[in-house]
């Protein structure tokens, strides 16, 4: 499993943590049991897995967030552009627009982003 990708089930779990963090493992287990119907061991397994990917950390019974949700998805899309378009954002945009044209509003937003960087 790649570092910056979450399966749908994993992301449901990650959402719970992002929403409630920092929280104790006990609380997390209760939340997961209620929302996902998981057993204690399953929660621990998934938490461990996501901790290994550097997203969360279990600090003596308290679950803390190392990468927050926005950061994670930003890195994920960076990673995606990197992998699929050799890091070329224009390439990505070209692929994105090849099938449908951008609306004026979208063009303006992109222009704003570029202007801010300058």
């Amino acid at each position: 499993m790649e570092k910056y990708s979450l399966g749908n089930v994993e992301s449901r779990f990650a959402d719970i943590v992002w929403e409630h963090a920092p929280l104790t493992t006990g609380e997390l287990i209760k939340l997961c049991e209620k929302e996902l119907g998981w057993k204690r061991t399953t929660t621990y397994t998934v938490l461990k897995k996501l901790s290994e990917r550097g997203i969360f950390q279990n600090q003596e019974g308290t679950v803390v967030v190392l990468i927050n949700k926005e950061e994670f998805y930003a890195r994920q899309s960076e990673h995606y552009v990197e992998r699929s378009f050799g890091g070329s954002l224009p390439g990505f945009l070209a692929a994105f627009t090849s099938r449908r044209s951008l609306s004026d509003k979208e063009i303006r937003e992109i222009q704003d982003i570029i202007n801010r960087k300058q």
Binding site: G7, N8, V9, E10, R12, L36, G37, W38, K39, T41, T42, T45, V46
Partner: peptide, 16 residues
């Protein structure tokens, strides 16, 4: 399969 979410009744979603 332990790491799965119940969609409804006996239907579950799993990642792997």
């Amino acid at each position: 399969l332990r790491m799965s979410i119940c969609l409804r009744e006996n239907i579950y979603l799993a990642d792997e």
